[in-house]
Nucleic acid binder design. Structure first.
Lengths: 337, 337
DNA sequence: CTGTTAGCGCATTCAG
DNA sequence: CTGAATGCGCTAACAG
């Protein structure tokens, strides 16, 4: 495998000149540059990323931490988000390591930095009050939380405005006449899930709608838990006339259960989801939901992280993006009893 | 950030001794070892993975190449497979870079090796006759193809026995009385899709079942294409009485379309999928399918790759695993007309 | 059992 | 404009 010295010999220059050519240093005589270029091509030379990383003290790699790899990866929303993250990293020339939060280095994320494996991390779906996040901040390791929040000084966050999402739907559903509005929460250890639930409670109270424990079902983001939510709500008397699911996946599970139990959506129960995953447009009825600005979330997260990696002392930024309602066919006026 | 020399100073030894302690070299006096250990902990020292990689000429990183990141990642089957791959890598202490086949280095995968970024790659869903694969073999870059096949000397493959899968279903369906058995193919540029189609054609001919162009719908693995497949088959006269979908995702799309068009499964049409994704147990009716030995596929792929990385001259191995039928409720006897 | 020397491939610094 | 020296942090090979 050819190194700079090999190229240098062939081109009759010092390896330093080769280095300059490779890095586009302008102060190389065009003639020399061309000679070097030819040697590079002839030897099929490519810079050794590891040697470069050692020298520059930058791995040019970021870590994408997923708490529960198996589970989280199968969320269509997450997988698309990852796609956009990877894409956004390319112009910055960073690579992306996928790490399961539970597995390797499950205890201490700062290890990744101490070992110099990554220059920064993006964390998806972190638990609330995860002590590992605090450790990252304490070490000033560039970190961005996605769909989560933290007040730590060196941990940035990118999230959607969960309060507005819920508020929008509460308004929308009350405008249709609904008052008994139920809620399916996500995995409650995750902040996003918590915020949505919190927003639900706040909005419901603010509008003096019935707020009861049994109107809240604690799911875990999976369609299976949406299915169970239906079973639970279907037993209530009076039954809720509308349901807000914390993500589309659960809404789809709910839809399925409703179908199996001959409960019509939206005639009997109105239903909304959050995310606008691809499948939301293909359910029966088509799902009314809230489109997350995935691509923006991904690019903002990457830009924020790159900024933090290039300037370690930059204080954390907290960016809240707005979601956009997508009204389809899963909501209707409150049924006349 | 502490280095070996820092530790060495504190422990009053040479950095070489520190290196030995870190690497568990037995020939260090226990007393000295302990002193070094304490210094390591006091300074919170961790070996620099990059320096180590440069020296050992091994990045301890593999690349997972996904042809179409956005699309492929959202396949539940794939995301679980990735989970298992990550898990299988941990005991070997390798990290995993996720790379989109289309993006970065889209043209030349050997670049990843020339740059020393990875020691090996696992390629998921490669196109058939992808020239990049040939280049990998020519350079003897350790590579494993998953759900694909190649006869190249230095490219190993791990796949399921597609022929047996199809044959099983053909037998199963003919035993139920079906003769007009239709087929929904996957993205035909992918070898797995091609093999399944090929197996379908071979089995159908062998059993003298009707084989017509219109009984084959070329999908692309997505549930949307399964939906379209239904639309297509539903127009045929006579309509096929059974359908084999090349994956569960398409089968689910088919199911949905059938429901919307008041065609009953399995009363009117029998349907089978392949993969046994989680959702297959939750559809209405529950989907009869073929369970892929995901975990085995992942671990075999990892072991194969690790073997190839540790012995570059090892010839490629071609491993074919068997899938296991999961009979649920989506098939029935041929309807009496 | 421990230390010295050398070098992995590159880029920064300073000379020419 | 180009080259020589130096070091990033670590380990392999050889000395002691």
């Amino acid at each position: 495998m050819a190194s700079q010295s090999d190229v240098a010999k062939l081109a009759n220059v010092s390896f330093m000149t080769v280095s300059r050519v490779v890095n586009g240093d302008p102060r190389v005589k065009p003639e020399t540059r061309e000679r070097v270029q030819r040697a590079i091509e002839e030897l099929n030379y490519y810079p050794n990323a590891i040697a470069r990383a050692l020298n520059r003290q930058r791995a040019m790699t970021i870590g994408l931490i997923l708490q529960k790899l198996d589970y989280v990866l199968s969320e269509p929303y997450i997988s698309h988000l990852i796609y956009h993250i990877e894409k956004a990293l390319i112009p910055h020339d960073y690579d992306m390591l996928i790490l399961s939060g539970e597995h390797r280095n499950g205890r201490d994320l700062t290890l990744l930095f101490k070992q110099k494996k990554v220059d920064g991390v993006i964390i998806l779906g972190s638990q609330m009050d995860d002590p590992r996040i605090a450790a990252l901040s304490a070490n000033r390791n560039p970190s961005v939380l996605l769909h989560a929040h933290s007040d730590l000084p060196f941990v940035s966050c990118v999230d959607v405005d969960n309060y507005s999402i819920i508020e929008y739907f509460i308004d929308y559903l009350t405008a249709l006449g609904h008052r008994r509005i139920a809620f399916i929460g996500g995995d409650s250890s995750v902040l996003d899930a918590y915020q949505r639930l919190d927003a639900y409670a706040a909005c419901v109270k603010k509008r003096c709608l019935p707020f009861e424990q049994e109107l809240v079902f604690r799911g875990n983001w999976s369609s299976g838990s949406g299915y169970e939510a239906f079973l639970h709500f279907n037993e209530l008397r009076p039954r809720p006339s509308a349901v807000i699911a914390s993500n589309d996946h659960m809404a789809i599970g709910f839809l399925k259960a409703a179908y199996e139990h001959q409960v019509r959506i939206p005639e009997d129960i109105s239903l909304v989801g959050i995310d606008d995953i691809e499948m939301a447009a293909f359910t029966t009825p088509k799902l009314t939901t809230m489109r997350q600005p995935m691509q923006t979330i991904a690019s903002v997260a990457v830009e924020t992280l790159v900024g933090a990696m290039e300037n370690r002392d930059k204080p954390a930024s907290h960016i809240i993006l707005q979601a956009e309602p997508v009204i389809r066919d899963s909501c209707g006026p409150i049924p006349k009893v």
